Amino acid sequence: MSGDVPLSWFLLFAAACFAIGLFGVLARRNAIAVLMAIEIMLNAANINLVAFWRFGDAPGPEGGPIPGVMLAIFVITIAASEVAVGVALILLCYRRWRAADVDRFDSMAG
């Protein structure tokens, strides 16, 4: 295990990915770009889940379930369904307003 990457590198990489995603959510006005930034943030959470599973004291594949990886797969599944619903909503809004700008979606309230 002398050639392994330390846990702190995974955590720094995940924090950088999360910060990039957060900046994308706050700075972008295009709805597709905002969805992509949210996906980057979810992938940062997945990196943390798998890294903590790998460096934790939980039993491996021979000793029982692997909860970190199972939770990451669950998050990936939820993210895929979130993207499907988000793209469907964006397409409906684009048909109505002819723009994918999130500032125009405020009139959906009623």
Rank of each mutant, 00 (worst) to 15 (best):
G60P: 04
A33Y: 12
L26K: 04
T77N: 06
L42E: 07
D4E: 15
W97F: 03
V83W: 07
N30S: 13
C93T: 01
A27S: 14
S8T: 14
A100T: 09
I32L: 13
P67K: 06
G86N: 01
L92A: 10
I78Q: 10
A109D: 11
G110L: 12
S2Y: 14
S107M: 00
A33C: 10
L42N: 12
R95F: 09
D57I: 00
C17F: 12
A31I: 00
A19H: 06
V5K: 13
A88N: 06
S2Q: 13
V69I: 11
G63L: 02
G64Y: 02
I32C: 11
M70S: 08
M41R: 04
I76G: 08
G21E: 02
R28Q: 15
A80V: 11
V69S: 08
I73N: 02
L49A: 07
G21T: 03
L42Q: 09
A72K: 01
F18K: 14
G64R: 03
V50W: 03
V25P: 02
A14R: 02
D106C: 07
P59A: 12
V69E: 05
D101T: 04
A14K: 01
F18T: 13
A45S: 12
V50R: 02
T77V: 11
S2F: 14
G56V: 04
F52H: 11
A45F: 05
I90N: 08
R28V: 06
G21L: 06
G86R: 03
V83C: 03
L12R: 13
F55D: 02
A72H: 01
S2L: 14
R54E: 07
G56Y: 05
M41E: 12
I38Y: 07
F10N: 09
S107H: 03
I32M: 13
A45K: 01
A19T: 15
W9G: 14
I38G: 02
A80W: 08
A99V: 05
A19Q: 04
D4I: 04
P59R: 10
F105Q: 04
G110I: 08
D101N: 10
F18C: 14
E82T: 12
E82Y: 09
D103R: 11
V25F: 10
A109Y: 11
A19V: 15
M70I: 09
R98Y: 07
A58P: 01
I40F: 13
F105E: 08
E62H: 10
L11G: 03
N43L: 13
I78N: 08
M36A: 15
D4V: 03
A84W: 10
R104H: 09
D4C: 10
S107R: 07
V69R: 00
M36K: 11
A33W: 13
V69F: 08
D4W: 04
F105H: 11
V50S: 06
I47G: 09
V34Y: 01
I76W: 05
A79C: 05
